[in-house]
Amino acid sequence: MNQPTRPENILTFDEPAVLETRSLSVFYGSTKAISGISLQVPRGEVVAIIGPSGCGKSTFLRSLNRMNDLVPGARVEGDVLYGGASIYGAGVDPTDVRYRIGMVFQRPNPFPKTIYDNVAFGPRVNGVKENIEEIVEHSLRRAALWDEVKDRLKSSALDLSGGQQQRLCIARCLAVRPEVILMDEPASSLDPIATQAIEALIRDLAQDVTIVIVTHNMQQAQRVASVAAVLMSDERRVGELIEYGPVDQIFGSPRDPRTEAYVTGRIG
C-alpha cells in the first residue's frame, strides 16, 4: 500500500481552477487525517471524491469551505485557494467563505421552519431585503422542487419527504448564489427514485455551479461526475490522493493499481 503517487496520475488543468488545494493536510489534535493533497477543481465540472471508509474524504471536503473550523482541535496546513486567493488567509471571514462555497450534507437538515423561510434564510442573513420572493421561487425551481411545493410554501419543511428535504437544502444553498457546492453523500439516505432526482439535479446544476461530491456509490460517481479523485489511507491511516483524472480513466483504465483494486472491490 505504501506506494508513492506518481505526478502523472494527478490531472492538472491549464484554465484557472475555481478551487485549488496545495499540499493540504488536516489534523485533529495530534492526529493527521489527510496529508499533502494538491488538486485543482475546474470551473463548471462535477468532481467526485471517492475512496474507502476512513480515508479522509469528508475531512477533505470540509476543508474546502472551512467547515472543519467548527471541529475543536482541527488544524490545517497547506492552503485552499478560491479564485486564486487563500480561504484561510488573515481577515477572511469563514461565514463569507461558506456562502460562496455552500454545502449539502449526508442527511437533509432543513431548519424547523416553513419551506419558504428555509430558502429565504440565507439571503435575509446576508441583508437582502428586496425580491426575496423571487429568490425563493428561483431557487426552488433551480432545485426542481417548485412544482411540488408552490402551493404549500408556508408548511413546515419537516413535512416534506426525505428526497424533497434534500432538494430543499440544495435550494437553500442556491439562494445565496454560491459558485461552488460541496456535497457529502447527498443521496445516501434516499431511495433510488429520490436518488435519481438528486443526480439529475446535480447534472443540471453543473451548468452554472461547480460541484464537489463525496460518494461511496461508484455508479453514482460515474453518472454525475466528469472528474474523480481517489483518496486512500496509507499504513499510518493518513488519507492521501493517489489518483485524480477523468471518470472514464478512473473506472475504465485506472493508472494506479490501488485505484483498480478499490474500484473493482478488492480493497475497501
Binding site: M218, Q219, Q222, F251, G252, S253, P254, T259, E260, V263, T264, G265
Partner: peptide, 10 residues
C-alpha cells in the same frame, strides 16, 4: 449483479 468496472469489466 456486480456492475463491474475497470479490469473486471474489460
Amino acid at each position: 449483479r456486480e456492475a463491474p468496472v475497470a479490469g473486471d469489466l474489460r
